[in-house]
Design a protein around this nucleic acid. Structure first.
Length: 569
RNA sequence: CGGGACGUGGCGCAGUCUGGUAGCGUACUCGACUGGGGGUCGAGUGGUCGGAGGUUCAAAUCCUCUCGUCCCGACCA
């Protein structure tokens, strides 16, 4: 590819509305252009990168027996009504009507479609298991798209679905997927972790995320510095609390006046106690009404854990007015003792003695609260957020580390949720009809490319890992008008392509400085600089984008070694 | 959906408070020189100032409405 013939509109300055590095650099490098909030056009250079990711994904999906399909992006409403998600998905689902006023949506995901395909055409246990996947444009009308292509509304995703007769078979494919995903992100040259994850609204019992470590990431993950336990923070288990060994005498429950003291901080200061003596009461609104969650004063409650402990459909922090209206207690003085709310407690609460909590009455708290004696709770479980340095729940020597990351892949075991709702049944070897067991597995293609940038850049621009680079090498003639330089450049260009090295030849009339700046911005791993002086001595210069190191090789003899040199970069 | 900010050539910005012929940098075009790190000089192209309405002799500037985009929060396979 000659630089003058390919559209790579680079910019010296980033657009004002780009915030994260990958967004800025992708725009500056002429890979993408924004069309609307969360909607982007992909230009030639950007597309070359996406195709690289897609190809790696395809190879690994095929390797574990996945079959590629291509499903419609516009989907009929009926299927979504069948699964119940037409109602449930809400505003994030982009709904459309055709000229006959029939309802459709632009697919945010494809469980309904794939389940429909399989129920029509797969009827026997002999045809199972089967894994189908596609690489498709999806649309989710996010409340707030941001971070460029990392969290757009329209995006490219690989989604795979597997169908099975048994849970064991599903787990088998699930673990093959996990391995395939690990290979994919390894091949992309990314530093990532596979972490346990909450399965969210998609349902299902078992799920892992693949998270590329980057400070700009939206996800936070906790992992053990000693064993291999790793989890999304919203699920990261707290180590089981041990009973307090120091024997304290149980005090009687007692009201104390705490006028105007609402927050944990205010109360602890006022009563001169440490915050771990407090029992914090946080109220949530759920489909089962208002509920209260209890954690120690020095902890934060984890809503995802609470939701799972309650086993409710949805859960939101309750607005103050609602709490006051329902309980008659002003905010800040709520407590679990004698409340009519359903109460769920963190395990640590059970080991507290002489706790302090709101008295369900204005300007008053209770002291000397004993779990067994004074508190009635629906259920006890792990409800608190973990902190950096907390002991690992799985091993005895490890401590939690917390890092940020970008979720690039997510795998789920769905169970029979969709197959039951949509009657995707098969006949087993006894001739009995049963619902299929399903798994589903996604990878954000554009997000993976963006994550690669978040992890590989410097002040000059992108530094592509070789497998994702739009070109592996760029030839920079010092002056393309000089015949010797020009013909050497063209010879090298031809030779490299013949050797399978995707090479860009910067044939523009600009000065070398300009070409360097662009080559660096685009992040092409290897620069081949051809100058008249070196050429006179039968040499050309190779320069690594990543290290900035350069060396001379003899021309034309050593040009054939470029593929090896690339492999070592 | 709550809070905040911003819309002026492709990109980055000034001008708005205090109304009076739309500007700067960069990019782009042409010419000359230059040719190992965004080079120099000269000559050019390109903007209904997001849109609609209003006030005024006169609106990028003041008023009203509207659309768009971004940030923080809530939300999120």
């Amino acid at each position: 590819m000659y630089y003058s013939k390919i559209l790579i509109p680079t910019l010296k300055e980033s657009p004002a509305d780009a915030e994260v590095i990958s967004h800025k650099l992708m725009v500056r490098a002429g890979m993408i252009r924004q069309m609307a909030a969360g909607i982007y056009s992909t230009l030639p250079l950007g597309l070359r990168v996406l195709k690289k990711v897609e190809q790696i994904v395809r190879e690994e999906m095929n390797r574990i027996g996945g079959q590629e399909v291509f499903l419609p992006s516009v989907q009929p409403a009926e299927l979504w009504e069948e699964s119940g998600r037409w109602e449930f998905y809400g505003k994030e689902l982009l709904r459309l009507k055709d000229r006959h006023d029939r309802e459709f949506c632009y697919g945010p995901t494809h469980e309904e479609i794939i389940t429909d395909i399989v129920r029509r055409d797969v009827h026997s246990y002999r045809q199972l298991p089967i894994t189908l996947y596609q690489i498709q444009t999806k649309f989710r009308d996010e409340v707030r798209p941001r971070f460029g292509i990392m969290r757009g509304r329209e995006f490219t995703m690989k989604d795979a679905y597997s169908f099975h007769t048994t849970e064991e078979s599903t787990r088998e494919t699930y673990s093959q997927m996990a391995e395939a995903y690990s290979r994919i992100f390894e091949r992309c040259g990314l530093d990532f972790k596979m972490v346990e994850a909450d399965s969210g609204t998609i349902g299902g019992s078992f799920s892992h995320e693949f998270v590329v470590l980057a400070d700009s990431g939206e996800d936070r993950i906790g992992f053990c510095d000693s064993c291999d336990y790793a989890s999304n923070l919203e699920k990261a288990e707290a180590r089981a609390a041990k009973p307090n060994s120091e024997s304290t005498s149980e005090e009687d429950i007692k009201e104390v006046s705490t006028p105007g003291k609402k927050s944990v901080e205010e109360v602890t200061q006022f009563l001169n106690v440490s915050s771990d003596k407090l029992i914090k009461t946080i109220v949530f609104e759920t489909d089962q009404g208002l509920v209260a969650g209890l954690v120690r004063g020095d902890r934060e409650i984890n809503p995802v854990k609470l939701k799972n402990l309650i086993d409710c459909e949805w859960l939101n922090p309750a607005p103050e007015e609602l709490i006051t209206k329902e309980t008659g207690v002003p905010c800040g003085y709520l407590g679990p003792v004698g409340t009519q709310l359903k109460v769920f407690a963190d395990t640590e609460i059970t080991h507290m003695s002489n706790g302090i909590t709101g008295a369900n009455k204005a300007d008053t708290h209770l002291t000397g609260v004993q779990f067994g004696r004074d508190l009635k709770v629906e259920k006890v479980g792990d409800l608190r957020d973990i902190n950096e340095g907390d002991r690992c729940p799985k091993c005895d020597s490890g401590k939690y580390k917390i890092k940020r990351g970008i979720e690039v892949g997510h795998i789920f075991i769905l169970g029979a949720k969709y197959s039951e709702a949509m009657k995707a049944h098969y006949l087993d070897d006894q001739g009995k009809e049963k619902p299929m067991i399903m798994g589903c597995y996604g990878i954000g293609v554009g997000r993976t490319a963006a994550a690669a940038i978040e992890q590989n850049y410097d002040e000059k621009g992108i530094i592509w890992p070789l497998p994702l680079a739009p070109f592996q090498a760029v030839i920079l003639p010092v002056n393309f008008k000089v015949d010797a330089v020009r013909s050497a450049a063209e010879t090298i260009y031809k030779t490299l392509w013949e050797q399978g090295v995707e090479t860009l030849l910067d044939d523009r009339s600009d000065r070398l400085g300009v070409k360097f700046k662009d080559a660096e911005l685009l992040g092409i791993p290897l620069q081949i600089i051809i100058g008249p002086k070196n050429l006179d001595e039968g040499k050309v210069e190779l320069k690594s984008r990543k290290t900035g190191e350069s060396k001379l090789i003899s021309f034309p003899e050593e040009i054939s070694t470029v593929p090896e040199i690339l492999a070592e970069l």
